[in-house]
Design a protein around this nucleic acid. Structure first.
Lengths: 123, 123
DNA sequence: CTCATTTCTTACTTTTTTGTAAGTACTTAA
DNA sequence: TTAAGTACTTACAAAAAAGTAAGAAATGAG
């Protein structure tokens, strides 16, 4: 669980309050979030099981946890249909959708960096 | 220390190899990196002690660690002058400079998000 | 000889994140 | 009545990130 008054937590809080960049990174920075956001960007609405299949290495626990965080931050919408077996669909909220150009930018830069750094030295 | 074959490390590696976004985030995602990059973007060349003062809450250990990672990833250049007391200057590399528009984008979105989410609900 | 200055190191602890394994709830269909 | 399907939970363990405190090197100034 998260402590509220650890130095670490306080530092994060302060950074988030003063640095837009740090703030954004704290929202999209979990291990599986880039993957999740990317799928939702590409596919629109997706069921839980679709996401699960699309991201092969993630566990249920982690997938749920990351979705919940995105939901709490209002970037992703969770829609439950009262059926059996259950159906739950996820999609970007309007706010989440405003990330699209930024996410694309981040992705493009990453691909570019990979190319460049593969040319220069062989990491 | 970092284990090389933990599930976690392998997951990260795989993500970095396939998802530009995840890759970028792994480069700029440390607790103090956004701050460091931001200062270097604004100020150009900075001494260690200037960075230290500009980022009040960081410890020596963390500041050095984050700078080393940025240096290893070729985003930041470290220049040592053979003087006593020592002088060490940091600045963005050319590759690091290519991040500028992206970092600006990330920062802008963060500021915008903060505004929006403060209007809607009072988080 | 001692001190100040600057840029780090090192050893260690705490906190946070991620992973593993197993189980739950609900209802329809066999 | 038993199994199947879906979307989770829970308890626990491992790994990674961040923080704390102290010290080290090099040298010129006093």
């Amino acid at each position: 669980m998260r402590k509220k008054n650890s130095t670490n937590a306080l530092n994060e809080k302060k950074i988030n309050a003063t640095c837009g960049m740090g703030f954004t990174l704290s929202l999209i920075g979990g291990r599986w979030k880039s993957n999740i956001l990317w799928r939702l960007m590409e596919n629109g609405t997706m069921r839980y099981s679709q996401l699960r299949k699309a991201i092969p290495d993630v566990s249920d626990r982690m997938l749920v946890a990351q979705l919940r965080e995105l939901e709490n931050d209002q970037l992703v919408k969770r829609m439950v249909y009262p059926e059996v077996p259950p159906r739950v669909e996820y999609e970007l909220t309007d706010l989440g959708s405003t990330m699209r150009p930024m996410l694309q930018h981040i992705s493009d830069w990453g691909e570019q960096y990979r190319k460049v750094s593969e040319e220069t030295n062989h990491e």
